[in-house]
Simulated assay, not measured.
Amino acid sequence: MNDTDDPAARGLVRGADGRLRPHWACSSELLRDYYDHEWGRPVTDERGLFERICLEGFQAGLSWETILRKRPAFREAFAGFDPEVLADWGDADADRLLAGSGIIRNRAKIRAVFANARATLALRESGGLPRLVLSFTPAAWTPPDSAAEQPTTSPESITLAKALKKVGFSFVGPTTCFALMEAVGMVDNRIRGASGLIDP
């Protein structure tokens, strides 16, 4: 067996259930379940995309596992990520959230959620957030052969980041946008031979 056929050499781990997953998805049950049931599953609705954009923004500088563990608290704190509610929130709401303990207490990231909500509502006049985000789906994509070959940005994520910033979004750099594109099924960045999604 050469390295190209060896799952371990390509960054994959075979679990007790026989499924092949990347190392990052094997470090906890939470990450394993996320990889098996959610990561890469298409998301095409406004609130779903809005929530994921905001959570990816909170993840910057932190581990995704931290965000997943706090996701129920994020949803409670941010009114279920309803942009119509959050668009009216301001400094007093940011102060209230900073005084709590359930979410990541970063004023800039909290205020970005409010700005992103206002931008999401404004986009409804020109087709909506899903139309904008999904328009940057690559025409073709080749899944990587190994973890070493997995990109963290793409030309599309770079232009998506610019487009989102132009209409008022914050914490949406090229790497964050590429993570979003992976998470919502715009690109299939699973390593060749890795197990796919399990039906929910």
Rank of each mutant, 00 (worst) to 15 (best):
R105I: 09
A183K: 01
T159G: 00
R124F: 02
G90S: 15
G128E: 04
R19N: 09
L20Q: 01
V43C: 09
T152S: 15
D36P: 08
G100Q: 15
K165N: 08
F74E: 04
R14L: 06
T120R: 00
K70A: 11
H37K: 11
A115D: 09
M186A: 05
F50A: 02
G15P: 05
R32N: 15
A115W: 02
L98A: 14
L86Q: 01
G168I: 02
A122T: 01
C26I: 10
P42E: 10
P200G: 05
L160W: 00
G127V: 00
P174K: 05
M186C: 12
F169C: 06
A108G: 12
A117Y: 03
A122G: 06
G48C: 06
D5M: 00
D45G: 15
L134Q: 03
K166S: 08
D33H: 11
A60W: 09
D88W: 08
M181K: 05
E84K: 10
G11W: 02
V43N: 04
P155S: 01
N106F: 15
D3W: 06
L129F: 05
V172R: 01
A8S: 06
F171N: 03
R19Y: 09
L132W: 06
L86M: 13
A148D: 09
E56W: 01
L49Q: 03
G57F: 15
W24E: 14
A92C: 13
P143H: 12
K166R: 09
P174Y: 10
V113W: 07
D5C: 02
A194H: 02
F136S: 00
D91F: 14
Y35P: 03
S157E: 03
W141G: 00
V187C: 04
N106R: 14
G100D: 05
T66N: 12
R96S: 10
D33G: 08
I67P: 07
T142Y: 04
A122K: 03
I110H: 05
W141V: 00
D95Q: 12
R190V: 03
D91H: 13
K162R: 13
F178I: 04
R131K: 12
L164Y: 06
A139G: 07
P200T: 11
R190E: 02
G102L: 06
